[in-house]
Structures are given as C-alpha cells and as structure tokens.
C-alpha cells in the first residue's frame, strides 16, 4: 500500500496491529526491524496527516467566520 492510497484509519489500524504483534510472544526478531521501520513510516505519515488536517480545519473555519 502506497502513501497516496493510505487512509488515516487504515494507517492507525496497521500501526495497532504491528504494536500488538511486537507486544506478543510471537515477536520475530528477524522481522522486528522491518516491522519497526514500517511503524516509523506510518507514524511519520500520520503526523504529517494530522498537521495538514489541523491547518485545513483552521483555514475552513476562518473562511466561514469571514463570510
């Protein structure tokens, strides 16, 4: 799944599932690094997305108040 097709909900769900996997006994050291890199990538994507959403909200609300 590429970033352009990703949704915030899907991203957080994937992040949750990675965390669950890492938190369980079945953690595989070999795939651990791959999982961590994916988690890190998802976290950065979500942060960017949240910041963009906050900017959008402020812009939209300010435009409504100015009307």
């Amino acid at each position: 799944m590429t970033s352009s097709e990703l949704t915030f909900q899907a991203a957080t769900q994937e992040l949750e599932s990675i965390l669950q996997k890492l938190d369980s006994d079945e953690v595989n050291i070999d795939s651990l690094t791959v999982d961590l890199e994916r988690a890190s990538e998802l976290i950065n994507w979500c942060r960017t997305r949240l910041e963009a959403t906050r900017v959008d909200v402020e812009r939209i609300v300010t435009a409504l108040e100015d009307d």
């Binding site: 976290i43 979500c46 906050r54 909200v57 402020e58």
Partner: peptide
C-alpha cells in the same frame, strides 16, 4: 473547529503513545 482540533489532539496523543511503544520495543 474545537471538536475537529480535539479529534486531532486525540489522534495525536494516540499516535504519541504508539510512537513511545515502538521506541520501547526496539531491540
């Protein structure tokens, strides 16, 4: 706006928690 910001904040906090967890799990 407030609800949207609160929602973002909640997601942000949740993301923060998950980030901490990811960091804590590093070998």
């Amino acid at each position: 706006r407030d609800l949207a910001l609160m929602s973002i904040e909640r997601h942000s906090q949740r993301l923060g928690r998950m980030t901490d967890l990811v960091a804590a799990l590093h070998p």
